[in-house]
């Protein structure tokens, strides 16, 4: 059994008086790919954002590399270097060039030298096929290009885990494939640990080792992916899968 990287215990989240997440429990091992599925409004995005402190959780515990996380702003800044995140809206910094977007974290947060950071950036950009765009501003790029660069920006910090929050939801259909291939390659070649919120069921089926199925803030299923897509344990999950098909 591979080493456990992240564990969530009895995580609850309230927003004002409303409860968003109920006693969420799960863990993820090194190299594992976890797909977070469920209908919209089920709490998937909230959950994934709790994992790097973009949302505060109300009660419960997080463990990174076996260490209990004390959720202070300082600690989060440390942990976030180990947890890369990519968003639905790409959110490259619009005031910075592609290169500056990527080296900002390594230089300012990790205090690497500029030449070292530029080297990392160039290598990663080459890998996603965008080496020619170093000096380009985000607004000059297509959605697919922006999203690939956003992935590079996260990878430049050498994270142990990557979080993907609906990263293809805003893309034009023809752009989706390129982005998904990069994610797949990250898993296959780099053995990257990943948690993925997505509506692309085919993709989830191909890449995920395990599926967490969420509804109304409850984890209804925590099932190996092979089983989930063929023979889900719950009626709700079967209905959900059915609704995603045409």
């Amino acid at each position: 059994m591979a080493k456990e990287i992240l564990r969530v215990e009895k995580l609850n989240k309230f927003y004002a008086k409303q409860q968003i997440l109920y006693d969420v429990d799960f863990s993820i091992a090194q190299g594992e790919v976890l797909a977070l599925l469920g209908p919209s409004g089920s709490g998937k995005s909230t959950l994934i954002r709790c994992l790097n402190g973009l949302e505060e959780f109300s009660t419960g515990d997080l463990f990174f590399d076996g260490q209990k996380m004390v959720p202070t702003e300082k600690n989060w800044q440390q942990i976030r270097q180990k947890i890369g995140m990519v968003f639905q809206s790409y959110d490259l910094f619009s005031n910075l060039t592609v290169l500056e977007n990527i080296v900002l974290g390594p230089i300012k947060v990790q205090k690497k030298s500029r030449s070292q950071a530029v080297q990392i950036a160039t290598r990663l950009l080459k890998r996603v096929g965008l080496a020619d765009y170093l000096q380009t501003y985000p607004r000059q790029l297509s959605g697919g290009q922006k999203q690939r660069i956003a992935i590079v920006r996260a990878l430049a910090l050498h994270p142990e885990v990557m979080l993907f929050d609906e990263v293809t939801a805003s893309l034009d259909p023809e752009m989706v494939r390129g982005v998904l291939e990069i994610i797949k390659e990250l898993s296959e070649k780099d053995n990257m640990t990943m948690i993925i919120v997505t509506h692309e069921m085919n993709f989830a089926e191909q890449i995920a080792d395990r599926v967490l199925f969420l509804e109304d803030g409850h984890i209804l299923e925590n099932t190996p992916s092979k089983q989930f897509f063929v023979n889900s344990q719950t009626e709700r999950a079967r209905e959900f899968l059915e609704s995603m098909k045409f």
Partner: peptide, 19 residues
């Protein structure tokens, strides 16, 4: 979302403000 993206790469509040 820009601020979230900055936090996600570990920037402090001050760095986020500055860059």
């Amino acid at each position: 979302t820009q601020i979230d993206a900055g936090k996600a790469i570990g920037m402090s509040r001050r760095q986020l403000a500055r860059y």
